[in-house]
């Protein structure tokens, strides 16, 4: 599946661990679920390599709020493109100052890419081919936004 980072197709540098998987060597960049983060937070924070968290869209972002400077990636999930909970999670994380990669996973489609970038997503795991072209087309559709430039600071 094509992975875009700021519009460019890249290889995924992260290892995504499920809750039962053993932790790899310290230098390996890993992501864990929100549940595992809560359970093993201290142990994970002791690692030297990059850390990331995958949040379900039913999880509050409060669980990682204090750890944002240490996180390089937060992946938020769209089980269906029409389930918009992750838009609120993303906006909140950016307003809390999260500066790492905010990755959209799941049912990520061309027609929603622009909205996603506007709430702070900069990574997109897509299923469709020619993801770069779709990204360019999606972002070129609009140059005028009521938010944030007009209404929302």
């Amino acid at each position: 599946m094509p992975l875009l980072r700021q519009g460019v197709a890249i290889e995924d540098a992260w290892t995504h661990l499920d809750d039962a998987a053993a932790l790899p060597a310290d230098a390996v960049a890993i992501t864990v679920t929100g549940a595992r983060w809560a359970a093993e937070r201290d142990r994970l924070l002791a690692r030297t390599g990059p850390l990331g968290v995958r949040l379900a869209n039913s999880e509050a972002v409060d669980g990682v709020e204090g750890d944002l400077p240490r996180l390089g990636l937060i992946a938020l999930h769209f089980p269906k493109f029409s389930d918009g909970r992750a838009y609120s999670q993303a906006r909140r994380l950016r307003r809390l100052g999260f500066a790492g990669e905010l990755r959209a996973t799941g049912n990520v489609l061309q027609d929603q890419l622009l909205l996603m970038t506007r709430v702070g997503f900069d990574g997109f795991l897509m299923t469709a081919p020619d993801a770069e072209r779709r990204y360019q087309a999606a972002l070129a559709a609009y140059d005028h936004f009521y938010q944030p430039r007009r209404i929302v600071a």
Binding site: F81, S82, D83, G84, Y87, S88, R91, Q112, L114, L115, M116, R118, V119, Y142, F145, Y146, Q147, R150, I151, V152
Partner: peptide, 16 residues
């Protein structure tokens, strides 16, 4: 009218 502008293509609230 302010609400119209605020809510038009609102990136967070288009998939409620």
């Amino acid at each position: 009218e302010i609400l119209r502008q605020w809510s038009t293509n609102h990136p967070e609230f288009s998939f409620l």
